[in-house]
Each structure stands twice: as C-alpha cells, then as structure tokens.
Design a protein around this nucleic acid. Sequence first.
DNA 1: GCCAACGTTGGC
DNA 2: GCCAACGTTGGC
Length: 155
Amino acid sequence: MNYWLLKTEPSDISIDDIQSVENGYMPWNGIRNYQARNLIRDQIKKNDLLLIYHSSCKQVGIVGIAKVAREAYPDPEQFNPESRYFDPKSSIDNFRWFCIDISFVEKFENIVPLIDIKNASSLSEMVLVKQGRLSVQPVTQNEWENICRMSKVLK
DNA sequence: GCCAACGTTGGC
DNA sequence: GCCAACGTTGGC
C-alpha cells in the first residue's frame, strides 16, 4: 500500500465535504496536469491512503486522511461542456483525463500547517516542500508517520 | 524541436 | 494583489 497527498481548495472541496458526502465516496476529478494524471492512472491503487491538503486559504496545511475507493477511470467532466473541467480536445474514444473515487477516513484534530512542514527537518524532502505546484504527490511512509504524529501534538 | 509568450498555481 | 515557479501553446 502506498501514500499520497491530494491538494484541494477548501472553498471548492474541504475535508468536511469529504466527511459528509452521502454515499460514502466522492469522485476526485478535475486533475488537469500530466504529472498528476500519470500518478493516478498508473500508480494509485485501491485502499492507498491520502493526505488531504488545503491550499489557497487562510490556514494552508494538511487536515486529514482519505483513502482510494476506486482506481482510475475516465473523468466524465472532460466530456461535459457545462463543466469547468471540460476539455474540448477529449472525446469518448480519445480522452486524456482520469479521476478516482475517494472516501473519508479521518479529520485531524489539529491542522498540520505548511509552515511547520517546511520547518521540520525530517520533511525537507517532501514533494510539497520541494515542488510547489503539483496537486497529486507521492508521500513516503516516513513522511506519513511524521505528519500523523504532528497532527496529534496539542497546540 | 526550440523557445517566447502566455496561463495557472498557490504562498505570502 | 503580487509574483515566482512552472506548465502549455503555437509559430517557425
């Protein structure tokens, strides 16, 4: 089993939205970056664990855990002209983009702020720190354990 | 295939 | 709102 990090803008989808979704899973679509696409298509497997990261908001950082409920399948939004994720260059028999389904696992009692991650020497190799703009990223087991530990430190 | 122009992400 | 970093587009 592997670990990953997913970025989301909480004004769009937050950890609370993931927690309260009705049928127990939600599609994670709108990934429109080839590096991220290749990860979800080729490497992300059912039951892999996901750190959920809130970006572009007041408190940026890691807020909880989700898991993969369904492996990569064609993102239906790319075919929908009404969608913000519509891709006019995609057709049913020649498409580009994939999505996965995720389900809620846990909301951290304390957010793990980006600044703390940047300041933690054990996390200096995290993709989150080294490469700014990637919405789906691999996380090592060691990084995973450190993040989970940091989430339990009382503020 | 190069690369300039442009667009997007995302922290601050 | 600024701007650095990076991805994409398109002319040549």
